[in-house]
Amino acid sequence: MKQFLRMGAAALAVATLSALTACGGDEGTAASPAADGGKPAQGKITFAIASAVIGPKEEVATYAVAKDQGFYEEQNLEVETINTDGSVAAIQAVASGSADITAADAGSILAAVEKGVPVKAVGGLVQNWPWVMAVKPGSGIKSGADLKGKKIGVISLASGSAPYARAYVHEAGLDPEKDVELLPVGVGAQAAGAFNSGEVDALALYTQAYTTIELSGTGFEYLPNPDMFQGIRSITFAVRKDTLDQKRDELTRYLRAGYQGMLFASVNPEAATRIGYKVFPQILAGKSAEERVANDTKVLGAWMKTATPKSGEPETFADWGAISEQEWDKTAAYTIGAGQITKKPVMADVWEPGLLAGANTFDSAAVVAKAKAYAPK
């Protein structure tokens, strides 16, 4: 894939290094000493949510379920959240010390590292490429080449949908700076309005966002993704390097609770959706749970398909968070092509998988049983 014009530095700028304290190494520290009875020491983690929670996806599966079902309590963790406006802003929050961990776009993490921002990826989340291009049925647009002269709606110019749209049209032989126009349209009703009104000719969103819009009555025709997008990673957990040193044990426990939440949501997405309403009541948007639960369960199910293996049953899932060297290579190549970074990164500067062995030490059978036995209160 040829290099094309990079996104403006301002759009990709993460926190300036002068505002940051010096970071330490990433070899980790000894686990927190056990409290009474072998219970892990009390820990506190702040999680930066990368976007407004208007529907059930990673915030519900990893945070809400872990909070409601006692997975954080089992890990003796107090977990708080802050809201940010996209992956770049979420990484800024982690880099500045406002948060300990975030789930952000892998390309944004790679871009931050190249700029010298002291953050590292510590665990995967979305493992199947979620982005896809959609047009109106009967529009006559059948391929990327047909998008020449068209307007493409993206969530924002700082979101993962913008580099995806640029890479998509570039792969089709177009100049993403001259041949198409990217317009920020958000997600949900805002994106649907821009699409249905003709303000944009196409949308570049993730599959879960399309499911939400389709359930409101809008129809789409999806353009095929080129092979270049296969094997690219998307949403990934990231932390600041010195936080990794200082809170290695707490971060391991946080990931453990989050992956337990993922397993629970895989087994019983309706239960996870109802839990999401309790923790994030804004998802309901003034409606009752019974009015929304059927559609929202489908929405969460669509997201779970991007975040879990394509085959096998949830009970058999293992190695939560793992990202292979090949997947990182493909992700880096895509990120270079998308203009987010200029060269292949040194993986040791980007990726610290050392927390995952500990994060995967939980009783999967007990989580599965809990999910199957869930009864709304």
Rank of each mutant, 00 (worst) to 15 (best):
Q3W: 14
L12K: 07
A13D: 13
A22S: 15
C23P: 02
E27A: 14
A31W: 12
Q42I: 07
G43R: 05
I49M: 14
S51Q: 11
G55A: 15
P56T: 10
Y63W: 11
A64S: 13
D68V: 11
Q69C: 11
G70H: 05
N76H: 14
E78P: 02
I82Q: 08
D85K: 09
V88T: 05
A95W: 05
G97K: 01
S108N: 11
A111I: 03
G116E: 02
P118V: 08
G123H: 09
G124S: 05
L125R: 11
N128D: 11
P130C: 04
W131F: 15
M133Q: 04
K136M: 10
G140D: 07
I141V: 14
K148E: 10
I155E: 08
S156P: 04
Y168M: 03
D179W: 06
V185T: 11
V187T: 12
G193L: 12
F195M: 09
E199I: 08
D201C: 13
L203F: 13
L205H: 11
L205G: 08
Q208L: 13
I213E: 09
G217L: 12
T218C: 04
F220M: 11
F220S: 06
F229C: 05
T236Y: 04
V239Y: 06
V239D: 00
R240C: 02
K241C: 09
L244N: 01
R248D: 05
A257M: 08
I275F: 06
F280R: 01
P281N: 05
A285R: 15
A285E: 15
G286K: 08
K287S: 12
A289Y: 03
V293W: 01
V293D: 00
T297D: 13
K298A: 14
S311H: 13
P314C: 04
E315A: 15
T316I: 03
G321T: 02
E325Q: 09
E325G: 07
Q326N: 11
Q326F: 03
W328I: 01
D329I: 07
T331Y: 07
A333W: 01
I336P: 01
A338S: 10
A338D: 00
I341G: 00
M347W: 14
D349Q: 11
W351P: 10
N360P: 02
F362A: 09
D363F: 06
A366R: 10
A373E: 12
